[in-house]
């Protein structure tokens, strides 16, 4: 069997292939369309202008993740500066202390469910929007985008331990937010 030759990276291909990915990450991190559009435009301009320097799909994907996250963080920073200046909040201020664990009931879900119904996806997206930003960033990059923790630590300027801790607490919060939708519908 002959592999098809790798497609040459043209601006059109990058646009079609990557704009919806960039937009998706920015939209989840920033929580609204207008900011996500600004970031997507910014990142696409950068990538199209640097296209000659990339040597293939894997390299460009890594680079795009990094640049998109940077642009989203910068955008958020700019917005925060325009609004009032707040004291940086600690993780505990944002999520309550300790990441306490509520016992909960069994969730009514199939063990191998990999495709989400549209309604479910909507509920999950809403829950992600409710995570405080530092936790949302880590959750989106680690669990949705499936990037390695070390890469996330580098992108966000955090220690590896901080990434792991935020990820854990973000998941616990997601569990609390989603529990009303998923638990207790079956008797067992």
């Amino acid at each position: 069997m002959v592999e098809p030759p790798p497609e040459k990276l043209t601006p059109e291909l990058v646009f079609r292939e990557y704009a919806p990915r960039i937009y998706n990450i920015a939209r989840r991190m920033l929580g609204n369309d207008a900011d996500a559009e600004d970031v997507t435009q910014d990142v696409l301009l950068q990538v199209v202008r640097k296209l000659d320097t990339f040597r293939g799909d894997a390299q460009i994907a890594t680079w795009l993740h990094r640049v998109t996250v940077n642009a989203a963080l910068a955008h958020r920073q700019k917005r925060a500066n325009r609004q009032k200046h707040e004291n940086p909040e600690s993780d505990d201020d944002l999520l309550g202390s300790g990441g306490s664990i509520t016992p909960g009931k069994k969730w009514n879900v199939g063990p191998e469910e990999t495709v989400l119904a549209a309604e479910q996806a909507g509920i999950i997206e809403k829950a992600i929007e409710q995570l405080p930003e530092p936790f949302r960033d880590v959750y989106v990059l680690a669990d949705v985008e499936e990037l390695p923790n070390t890469e996330i630590a580098e992108m966000l300027g955090l220690s590896l331990a901080a990434v792991k801790s935020r990820l854990h607490r973000a998941r616990l919060r997601m569990r609390d937010l989603l529990a009303p939708h998923f638990e207790g519908k079956v008797t067992s």
Partner: peptide, 13 residues
Amino acid sequence: HVVRIARALPKTR
């Protein structure tokens, strides 16, 4: 399940 559903979300929009 919280981990699994995140992975099942679309990677493009």
